[in-house]
Amino acid sequence: MTVRALVIDDSRAMRRIVTGTLEGFGYETRQAGHGQEALDVLHEGWVPDLCTIDWNMPVMDGLQFVNAVRTNPAWRAVTLMMVTSESEHGQIVRALAAGAHEYVIKPFTADAIRDKLALLGLLPQEVSL
């Protein structure tokens, strides 16, 4: 079974890093530069198992995207993981309250992404060092 992820970040460097990490774990990926672009991908019918979501982006930010995804029951199975430099306690609480499942604080290592995917049951293959 292929696991699919939509990587949402306004930085193409960060999209490349997250995408490369996920592909290393066996993911099939697509990318979006902001929340609206990501919603367009979902509406198109490409519904992933996981979205990694930056917070501060132009057009539609990550929190607005989480809220939008949560209003559509057809997307209930999508796991939402924030990957952002927003790192106050209160910001993490806000994102979880809006419906995000997990939260990775930038800066992160590939190990951090792997550990979170393992917690979420979204690690397709056991990967060692």
């Binding site: 790192s87 993490i92 800066p107 550990d115 393992a118 917690l119």
Partner: peptide, 11 residues
């Protein structure tokens, strides 16, 4: 920050 990023559930 790097340590709390490692496998600690956000909730």
């Amino acid at each position: 920050q790097l340590e709390v990023n490692r496998g600690l559930p956000a909730p």
